[in-house]
Amino acid sequence: MSSPWSPRKKLELNPSRYPARLRLLAVLVVAPAILLAQVPWWALVLLLAALPLLVRGWQPAQLSQMELHEQRLTLIGRHWQELECPRRVLRAGPWMAIQTPKGWLHLFDDQAPREQLQPFYQWLWTNKSN
């Protein structure tokens, strides 16, 4: 049973546009390194042709749903996880990564309005273990 002091908040998150930008950034960073590598020309062409195919399927594990209730945070993404206190939380600009025992989950600002994400940010900040 939840008390009025620990309100239950549930948030469905939208898909983000940032993973596609991260894939493009990966191609732009790796392509010059491939061009500068001292390999035969045929290997260079093969690597450059394969690069877009290699990063096409890559995507960070994103959150699809978050629920805050009675001092526990439930995260649903690639895996389901319930946290009483987060291990590590990294935040840089529009991106936040949460380390769980099952791996990292990523949250981007374009998945929900900041007003809806604010209670979750506050919970993560006040309950961090470090």
Rank of each mutant, 00 (worst) to 15 (best):
Y121Q: 02
L73G: 04
L25N: 09
S64I: 02
L54F: 11
K10G: 05
Q122Y: 12
S64T: 06
V45M: 03
F120D: 05
W95H: 04
N14F: 02
L44P: 05
S3Q: 00
V30K: 03
E115A: 08
P7H: 04
L51M: 05
L90R: 14
L73Q: 02
E82S: 15
T74P: 01
T126I: 11
W41G: 08
L35F: 07
P19K: 05
A33C: 12
L75Y: 05
L51K: 07
H79Y: 12
V55E: 13
R91I: 02
P86N: 11
A37G: 14
P40C: 00
A37I: 04
V39T: 06
R91G: 07
W123R: 05
M1R: 10
V39S: 06
K102C: 15
S3K: 11
L46Q: 09
W80G: 10
R78F: 07
Q62K: 00
Q71E: 07
V39F: 10
L36Q: 14
Q71A: 14
R8G: 11
L53H: 08
S16I: 04
R78Y: 13
T126G: 04
L105D: 00
G93Y: 02
A92R: 13
L36C: 09
G57S: 02
L54C: 11
A112L: 03
L13A: 04
W41K: 15
L22T: 01
R21D: 09
S64A: 11
L105P: 05
P7F: 01
W42S: 14
E12C: 04
S64K: 02
G77E: 07
F108C: 03
A33F: 12
Q122G: 15
S129I: 15
K102E: 15
R23G: 08
P19C: 09
E82H: 12
S129D: 12
Q81W: 04
Y18D: 11
Q65H: 15
Q59V: 10
F120K: 03
L36D: 12
N127Y: 14
L117W: 02
W125S: 10
W42I: 13
W95T: 08
H69N: 15
W5E: 13
L13P: 04
K128C: 13
L35H: 11
W104Y: 04
H106C: 05
L24H: 15
R21A: 05
S129V: 07
W41P: 06
L46I: 06
Q81G: 09
A92W: 13
L75K: 00
